[in-house]
Design a protein around this nucleic acid. Sequence first.
DNA 1: GATGAATGAGGCTTCATTCAT
DNA 2: CATGAATGAAGCCTCATTCAT
Lengths: 206, 206, 206, 206
Amino acid sequence: MAVQQNRKASKVGKAELPRDHILSAAAKLFRDQGFAATTLRQIAAAANMQAGSIYYHFTSKDEILDEVLDVGLARIFDAVRQAVAECGSEAGAEERILAAMGAHLRTLLSRSEFTSVNIRVYGQLPEPVRERHRPKRRRYGLFWDDLFRQAVQTGAFRSDMKVKPLRQFVLGALNWTVEWFDPERHSVNELVERCTQLILSGVRRQ
Amino acid sequence: MAVQQNRKASKVGKAELPRDHILSAAAKLFRDQGFAATTLRQIAAAANMQAGSIYYHFTSKDEILDEVLDVGLARIFDAVRQAVAECGSEAGAEERILAAMGAHLRTLLSRSEFTSVNIRVYGQLPEPVRERHRPKRRRYGLFWDDLFRQAVQTGAFRSDMKVKPLRQFVLGALNWTVEWFDPERHSVNELVERCTQLILSGVRRQ
Amino acid sequence: MAVQQNRKASKVGKAELPRDHILSAAAKLFRDQGFAATTLRQIAAAANMQAGSIYYHFTSKDEILDEVLDVGLARIFDAVRQAVAECGSEAGAEERILAAMGAHLRTLLSRSEFTSVNIRVYGQLPEPVRERHRPKRRRYGLFWDDLFRQAVQTGAFRSDMKVKPLRQFVLGALNWTVEWFDPERHSVNELVERCTQLILSGVRRQ
Amino acid sequence: MAVQQNRKASKVGKAELPRDHILSAAAKLFRDQGFAATTLRQIAAAANMQAGSIYYHFTSKDEILDEVLDVGLARIFDAVRQAVAECGSEAGAEERILAAMGAHLRTLLSRSEFTSVNIRVYGQLPEPVRERHRPKRRRYGLFWDDLFRQAVQTGAFRSDMKVKPLRQFVLGALNWTVEWFDPERHSVNELVERCTQLILSGVRRQ
DNA sequence: GATGAATGAGGCTTCATTCAT
DNA sequence: CATGAATGAAGCCTCATTCAT
């Protein structure tokens, strides 16, 4: 079956599209050094170009950041949403949160440098940037709040805390792993397993 | 009786020493914007001086950072150590960890902008800086590891995880609160109470 | 009879030649913003192409400028020469200068963006460019000088000034109108009429 | 008589104030090359500094331009106003305009590189800059309009033209001299004398 | 102790220009 | 003929740092 590939498609696979190449290089640098400490020249070098060439694809360093943040959030949101969806309709609230936690953690730790940027550096970004992205982040938070609300209402989770702080604590506990966990040295699956157990049941021996 | 006050001692008086003034101003800015994004001029302005004047007190921006990190770690370490000591010798492992968590959280959230810098921005600092501070941070980690080891060995805590990841998870869960908790709008005591409960027993209804 | 049209000739057709299109777009931009402030990309956009495509037609931005200047001078020179020629051989010196002034002003104000570039921006161009064009401009000046010389010699014009400064003053008075006169809001004919009267007789009531 | 000079004053004389030094250097370069073609480094070099040092005194290239334009207009306006004032109250309209023209021309040609910038490059400046300065320029124009109105009303000047175009033509004729007159080679006084005569009485022999 | 002024390296960005397609 | 993509020099500007006063 003869396949006539168009230009865009033909580049996928071997040669990454330059725009994506730049974004990915930038994401890694932002994640490791922060946004302000990362130089256009560093990004360019990582993408095998000259600094000036980046401006053919983006209009500013800020635009790169915006896009990195967007992609990062989209990836983790998609992964979590899909994981929850795959639980099936008869799944209990706890089961769904378990799935969501796994997806969140996996995306954060091994699937997307974009996501780690969003998680790690967001808090130190200039206010105008944060402002632009707050709505999207809030939407992600609300999705989790729904999951938690169901777990609390069905009696699966403790009810002595409001849903929002509960969610913030749990996501925070997961997020912080990005500061120390090295997916190249340990098993992500194992980490997921343990973190979820700790979050569900705590550190106390039962 | 003539009293010859040394520099340190004079600090007890009204006016803060300029050196401390600078450090504190720098800490707040580093915490909010990150190190790279913070300007010597911003620090100077916050300390009511000109940028050049800072060099009478410090030899470089890096030196300020080093000192801020040191103070931040010292404060939280001291607070935690003291809290544990105050438990008395007959206290159980869990009680001591509870006290430690409270002290850690309180210092982080309401007592020291220096500590929040250390927690928030460390991961994005240039490697040479991190290298300089790694030993001190490790010592703090080892202190916690001891606490956890005792809790595990006495059977208070679950034993299916190694001590180090356990400690990292717990501290991480606490640390992340600095990203969202606003001590001016909610009670730190309440947060401490809830976080410790969540860590001990998890989110599940018991 | 097969006709082999050369490039120049083909211009007579409907669509403007790209070369001319570029020149005209460049002229307008140079006239309004100056040469240095005008971007190859602006020129390209105004000519409905990409910046790179311009290099098929010209070898450099400087070449475009050179040609714009040439065309501008040629147009005004041609117009003035023709206007003088059309006066007929029995016309007096003043009559011929009147015709020349009208042609100069009309070309400048409503017939050629190329000419306005030459008039407006020449003085701020880099010396090498000016040097290249000085001879041509001088020739135009000399043509006027001849006109003035005749007027002075025949007693039509005052003789207490040398011809060259006289010509420079008169042309200057005409040239400056390009800085404020808007041919879309007022009548060029009227302006010509008034300017020539002012130049001939001055502002005093007679 | 003991003179207590303050710092500002003591610098006047020998060492020009750096701010003024920069402005004056910039004015000359803007006047000769235009604003866009003039480099911060050129300005700095002409002021014996590094490019970065300029930013201690000004916040941007645009701010330098604004100030140059302001000074240029202030100088010519002051000179003209004073020249008119010095005519005395019993002076006729024509006499006052004569004085004004002399002051305008003299300032433009030999007293202020700032003024020539305002006259020469204004028309090619970006619209936002022009917009900022339009009100000030208009005020200068209105001052002249008053002079002309009086001359027309007292019957000294011809009345077949509206005042505004009349003024624009006259000032234009004067302004253009800056494009060709070299005050180092010819006498400004002589030029003033001749220009004013031409403007008053025209080129025709009387 | 402090500051005003300057420096120079380097940051982001623009732009004329090139070239394979 | 035209373009998409890239280049590298240079532009404006920032910033840590220095130093005479």
